[in-house]
Simulated assay, not measured.
Amino acid sequence: MSNDVIVVGGGVIGLTTAIVLAESGRQVSVWSRDPAEETTSAVAGGLWWPYRIEPTAAVGDWSVRSFAILAELAERPAETGVRMVDGTQAGIGMADLGPWAAELPGLRPAGAGELPDGSSVGLRARTPLLDMPSHLGYLLRRLEAAGGTVERRTLTSLAEAHAAAPSVVNCSGLGARELVPDPEVHPVQGQLVVVENPGIDEWFVSADHASADTVYVLPQPYGVVLGGTARENVWGLEPDPAVAELIIARCARVHPELAKARVLAHRVGLRPARRAVRLGAERLPDGSLRVHNYGHGGAGVTVAWGCAQDAAELVGRS
């Protein structure tokens, strides 16, 4: 065996996990059905914020550790695709957040003049905002620099990876539904629209975790990402024109200039959701180690580095 570890899955969870392992001296190969630019991660809006993910206590710790790393990467935005950007979370107050909020520098209640019409409460924060195509490219380069490799592989079983390395880290996201198999893994479909930026430089989010419709406005170097939807157990990847119109209309109530912004792209992604993230290890009958790191729903970007560190630690105990 030429590899110490096979990481199954080439999205943001798999790549960050592989980087932590490779930079600790492991011989790592990522096996992924899709190239990074075609994974769900590439479609993500890219805002750091714990969203639709459990368990609460662990998520807070993973998020805080990830925040610290992303804040460092934001010092080199052209290289890493990470920027620190000011923004507003409408519809929630400090009491709605977990203990992790105390670790977020500059987080404060929004003043009345900082909220759109119809919002009576909200928060202001400066958080990482990732240009995901650019960031995934950075992760691939960093993995290569650490000696890791990426291979295009379509697996029908995790046993195929175990035949190539003594340790396997399962970061297969939605694919875990079949590969584990884990029927608890299911898609939460998200649709978004990318438009030309009419001059917006802050992010805005209003998301009820129980609602299938959300509002987010995320300024990126390539345009403004408008969202969105959160449709449980919907597998379709084709954008719905009627849904796109509603997304633009909701966002235009916050920034009226968006109503006439030229549409650049429509995107749909499937968040790999689960009742709670599965991050743990199991020893197989043949003595090989399997570490699971999947089920991050809509917060993979937010928790990726914290989860990667914990997954790598589990491998290190082997």
Rank of each mutant, 00 (worst) to 15 (best):
V8Y: 01
G9E: 07
G9L: 04
G14D: 01
G14N: 07
I19D: 00
L21K: 07
A22T: 03
A22N: 03
S24R: 14
G25H: 10
G25K: 08
G25A: 11
R26V: 00
R26S: 08
V28T: 05
S29V: 03
V30I: 11
R33L: 12
R33A: 14
R33D: 12
D34R: 15
D34H: 13
A36L: 07
A36F: 07
A36T: 05
E37H: 14
E37A: 13
E38L: 14
E38S: 14
T39L: 08
T40K: 00
V43T: 14
G46T: 08
L47W: 09
L47F: 08
W49S: 02
P50R: 03
Y51L: 12
Y51D: 11
R52F: 03
I53L: 11
E54I: 00
E54G: 10
V59E: 08
G60N: 08
D61Y: 01
V64M: 09
V64K: 06
R65P: 06
R65C: 00
S66Y: 06
S66P: 09
I69Q: 14
I69H: 14
L70C: 04
L70E: 04
L70W: 12
E75C: 07
R76T: 13
P77N: 10
P77R: 05
A78D: 15
E79D: 13
V82C: 11
R83N: 04
D86P: 01
D86Y: 05
T88N: 09
A90R: 04
A90F: 09
G91C: 02
A95I: 02
A95C: 01
D96V: 06
L97R: 10
L97S: 10
A101M: 06
A102G: 12
L104I: 15
P105M: 08
G106M: 05
L107G: 00
A110L: 11
A110D: 09
A110Q: 13
G111Q: 12
G111P: 03
A112W: 03
L115P: 02
L115M: 08
L115K: 05
G118M: 07
G118D: 11
